[in-house]
Amino acid sequence: MGIISRAFHGRPREPDAKLPPGQYLVHDFPVLSAGPTPRVPLDRWEFSIDTAEGPVHRWSWEEFLALPQETPTVDLHCVTKWSKFGTGWKGVSLDVLMEDVESAAEYALAYSYGGYTTNLPLEDLLDGKAWVVHEFDGEELEPPHGGPARLLVPHLYLWKSAKWIKGIRLLNEDWPGFWETAGYHNYGDPWREQRYDGD
């Protein structure tokens, strides 16, 4: 029975053990929106790593695609309580993007086409924990899900994985982003259920 059930569902692991507290499993991919969906032409797309003083590195779309690519498969956890297991992405590790960056900064602010921002400790972007991704499930990332490229930081609630990413600013002090200044938690660890400010 167990074998039949597992084959039928195509899910080789126990779902509950992978669900953070308060989350439920979905099989679709909900789209949450805080504004109009930006449409960014690829010939005008660029991604920057910068400091308050100016850009440190900047990549065009072609330059970005020429960087070493990874294909992480990760679980997603949205603060609105849905989780989605085993999502497949393609993109560039932040370790690659930060390779030549000399900085003593401890904080990062991801900023997006359309004006969205979200803040993270810089260490949460490094050591294989974050990517800038441009494919989902073997297809080009569609604009409603953050295409042409979005940040992917799966160990934090999904609002930290900024859609339509335009750049990452390295900072010496923490600058809370869009939702972090509007009532949501500054860090957003799903395993500690850090949903709202003060949780």
Binding site: A34, G35, P36, V79, G115, Y184
Partner: peptide
């Protein structure tokens, strides 16, 4: 926009955020 993760009300002219309600 919203209601989840919060309501985001934008200016009908410039689309900047006027208020949010979480």
């Amino acid at each position: 926009y919203g209601p989840d993760p919060g309501l985001v009300a934008r200016c009908p002219s410039c689309e900047e955020v006027v208020l949010t309600l979480v």
